[in-house]
């Protein structure tokens, strides 16, 4: 793990570390799990990949507020006709937040869901072009 060279444009909040596969926290009545994430740079884009099994593309909610990218996913419930006889991983929803800095173009973030993996592509913003100020003389 390259956690040492952490001069990335995406910050992970301290309480958002998935210590184990079953790291879950009490949130009102529901358990919410922090999905495991990969963050890497591919060309000019920053890519975040999150493991969210059981979540379909329609049930993912991605929001950006005050430069905080929040991803939450709802797991489809098991049909009521199924009765549980052995449980090793309790079905629960996912939530994770990332802090973005100004270098990321928040308008053009793309998201793609495939086989339970959510892939977010965060393009870098066009660096502010130097402005030329013309001086007029009276």
């Amino acid at each position: 793990m390259n956690n040492n060279n952490f001069e990335t444009n995406v910050k992970v909040n301290a309480n958002q570390e998935p210590q184990s596969a079953c790291n879950s926290e009490m949130n009102e009545e529901k358990y919410v799990r922090v999905p495991r994430a990969d963050i890497y740079q591919n060309g000019d884009d920053i890519i975040i990949e999150l493991d969210m099994p059981g979540v379909s593309a329609q049930n993912v909610d991605i929001q950006i507020e005050n430069n905080v990218l929040t991803i939450s996913g709802t797991v489809k419930k098991v049909p009521e006709t199924w009765s549980l006889i052995h449980c090793e991983s309790a079905p629960c929803d996912y939530k994770r937040a990332f802090e973005l800095n100004n270098e990321i173009d928040a308008e053009n973030i793309k998201a793609n869901m495939n086989a339970g993996v959510l892939k977010l592509t965060l393009p870098k913003a066009q660096t502010a072009k130097p402005k030329k100020i013309e001086v007029t003389c009276a």
Binding site: T81, P91, V117
Partner: peptide
């Protein structure tokens, strides 16, 4: 793998989360 086991009528259902596979 973390596996959940269910029964439905005469069926036994084994369910497991393995994201990102083909």
């Amino acid at each position: 793998l973390n596996t959940n086991l269910y029964t439905e009528g005469n069926n036994l259902i084994v369910q497991s989360n393995i994201p990102g596979l083909k």
